[in-house]
Simulated assay, not measured.
Amino acid sequence: MGHAIHWAKDLSEARDKAGLFVYDLVLLDIDLPDGNGIDYLREMMKWPVPVIIWAGSEQDGIEGLNAGAADYLVKPFIFGALFARIHAVGRRHEKFPEPYCVGRLYINEAERCCERDGQRVYLTRCEWTVTTCLRRRPGAVVSKATIEEELSSLGSEIESNTVEVYISRLRKKIGRDRIATVRGVGYSFVPESDTAPVDLVREVRSIVNYFLKKPWFTGRIILDDDGCPPLVRKFEDVLAVSVALHCLIENALTHGLPDTPATVSLRANGTIAIVNGGPVVPLPDPDELEERHRRRTEADSGFDLSLANQAIKDVKGSLEFASPAPGREDGFETIIRIPQ
């Protein structure tokens, strides 16, 4: 079915893997050689991952649901039922993107169905993996290293041009304008025509919500867009802001004070300010940022200020820095400005 799977033979191994990887869904047999799966299920409830349990009886299944499981199957069961439960739970917990149906293209990851111009398009397991990786965050940019990691989890051999090969194949199958390349950063799934305008306000809200869903960033961002009307901008401009905002929010949360939320403020003129608390630091030099970006390689996957600066500069915008942040005695502020 194209899913990447890690198998653990007992509770001890399961705990080890849980500390090393982030999973979209867990299948848990409650009859384990070194403990009770229900007890482990209660441990897992502190992580935002849905669990389907394999129960020995209906009563065990009910106990699992009461302990926090998303669903259960009573053994023995057929694999068709298992796949159906995986897809149902995945949809409820937003592990699969919503089906895409715009114009000539239809994509449904949960059902592994793709159509173009009414004709079925067959994607390989790796092509589905790349598609889902891009579509989990439509309009956002996914780094090459992230896609390589997803492909590696399937057991695929990764070479220097593996991602480019799959991107090229996908463009031939679903349309060249459906996948955009962001130079030096990665790739983005384009939800609509690459010439269609996009609401900047909706995109900023989506990015902030993406960070708030990460357990280690929960409660650490405040979005201030009160009274801001819809801001319709060119797709290229909004994509550049998306790249820069991911870099700048991650920078603010990483270097800011853990007990002081970072603030993302969006104003009616399209300017966006990102402010975090923390020590006063030397201001970045724009020429140095540009040189740092120029030296980057495709293998670089980390988001940093040089990527943010280059992304905004590519659409003839600018970044402005201040430390201490205006109105404070500490902290760091970045302002994104793009043409109206």
Rank of each mutant, 00 (worst) to 15 (best):
G2P: 12
A4Y: 08
A8K: 00
D10L: 12
S12H: 14
A18S: 10
F21A: 09
F21C: 14
V22N: 03
Y23L: 01
L25T: 01
D29A: 13
D29P: 00
D31R: 04
D31G: 10
M45E: 12
P48C: 04
P50D: 09
P50H: 13
I53H: 00
I53A: 09
I53E: 05
E63D: 15
A67V: 11
A67C: 09
D71G: 03
V74S: 07
F79A: 10
F79R: 14
L82N: 08
R85I: 06
V89M: 13
F96T: 00
P97E: 12
P97Q: 15
P99A: 08
Y100L: 13
C101F: 15
V102G: 00
G103C: 03
I107E: 14
N108Q: 08
E111A: 13
R112S: 11
C113Q: 14
E115Y: 14
D117C: 06
G118Y: 10
R120C: 08
V121N: 05
Y122N: 05
L123D: 03
T124K: 02
T124H: 07
E127T: 01
V130Q: 02
V130G: 02
L134K: 01
P138E: 10
A145N: 04
E149M: 11
E150F: 13
L151T: 03
S156A: 15
I158S: 04
T162C: 03
L170C: 05
I174S: 07
I174K: 02
R183A: 15
V185I: 10
Y187I: 06
V190S: 13
D194A: 15
A196N: 11
L200K: 05
L200I: 10
S206C: 09
L212E: 14
L212Y: 02
L212H: 05
G219K: 11
I221V: 13
D225I: 03
V238G: 07
L239Y: 01
V243M: 10
A244K: 07
H246I: 03
A252F: 11
T254Y: 10
L257G: 09
T260Y: 11
R267D: 03
A268E: 15
N269V: 05
G270K: 03
T271G: 01
I272H: 06
I272M: 08
A273P: 01
A273I: 06
V275W: 01
N276W: 07
G277I: 03
L283Q: 06
D285N: 15
P286K: 04
E290F: 12
E291S: 05
E291Y: 02
R295F: 15
R295C: 15
T297S: 15
E298Q: 14
A299K: 15
S301R: 11
L307E: 12
A308C: 00
Q310V: 04
D314W: 04
V315G: 12
G317V: 08
L319P: 11
L319K: 00
F321Q: 00
P324Q: 05
A325C: 08
E333K: 14
T334W: 05
I338E: 06
Q340C: 12
